[in-house]
């Protein structure tokens, strides 16, 4: 029984393997043929795929220098700060670096009876995302982060009394209007937040608050058609 059955079993196994192999290949081939032979009825309306404007049109990009005045909080009141920047955009991404310079003198009696001037500046970079990209105008959401230095200077002797570092972050919305392909104007609104401010006579929240800025950009703007 055993001597006869073993070769039979091997033959059956080989046969079944061959059969399944052929069947599988056939099914795959049939699917391929079916895909290749898909046809539409004459009445079917084929929608034309809408072209990607970014792919179809030239890619929007720009590179520029920027000068602006920022109306922002400071220890005594809101006041104008000067800001200089260089920036670039590519498709929806905006990047840049800036220096925010406060030249206005804030005089305080820090050590009685002496008067001191507070001078500070900070600089850093920003990363933005274009939310609306129009032909001549666009709206960008951008996040600014910077490191700065602050110094109390004796108003009379000009000697430094104390200095320290701090950080500043500001999310803002920037509306830009391109006048020509080399000049644009912008206005923005944001919220400034100071970090690590530990200076005598300065409240750590003195620099926190809403800001508005207006400025101009000079460079090259690859306009949307």
């Amino acid at each position: 029984m055993d001597s006869i059955s073993l070769p039979v079993i091997h033959c059956v196994k080989s046969f079944l393997t061959l059969l399944f192999g052929l069947l599988s290949a056939n099914i795959l081939l049939a699917q391929q043929l079916q895909q290749d032979s898909v046809s539409y009825a004459d009445t079917t309306k084929v929608r034309e795929e809408k072209a990607d404007p970014i792919l179809e049109n030239p890619i929007p990009w720009s590179i520029f220098i920027e000068a602006s005045a920022e109306y922002a909080p400071q220890p005594d009141e809101h006041n104008f700060h000067q800001q200089l920047a260089i920036g670039a955009s590519y498709r929806m991404i905006n990047i840049g670096a800036f220096v925010n310079l406060q030249k206005k003198t804030i005089t305080k009696t820090l050590i009685f009876p002496n008067q001191f001037d507070l001078i500070y500046l900070h600089g850093g970079g920003y990363l933005g995302l274009t939310l609306i990209n129009g032909q001549q105008a666009d709206l960008v959401l951008r996040y600014n982060f910077s490191k700065g230095g602050m110094v109390w200077e004796n108003a009379e002797t000009k000697a430094d009394l104390v200095r320290d570092d701090y950080y500043m972050s500001k999310p803002e919305l920037v509306f830009q209007y391109r006048l020509l392909n080399f000049i644009s104007f912008f206005a923005s609104g944001g919220y400034k937040l100071g970090h690590g401010i530990e200076m005598p006579g300065i409240n750590k929240n003195d620099f926190n608050g809403f800001t508005i800025s207006v400025g101009g950009r000079l460079g090259f703007f690859h306009l949307n058609p």
């Binding site: 500070y120 970079g125 230095g149 110094v151 430094d160 009394l161 104390v162 200095r163």
Partner: peptide, 14 residues
């Protein structure tokens, strides 16, 4: 760039 933007790394002379 960040380093250059600060007024200086020295500790407060105070």
């Amino acid at each position: 760039f960040l380093y250059g933007c600060s007024l200086g790394p020295e500790k407060p002379d105070d």
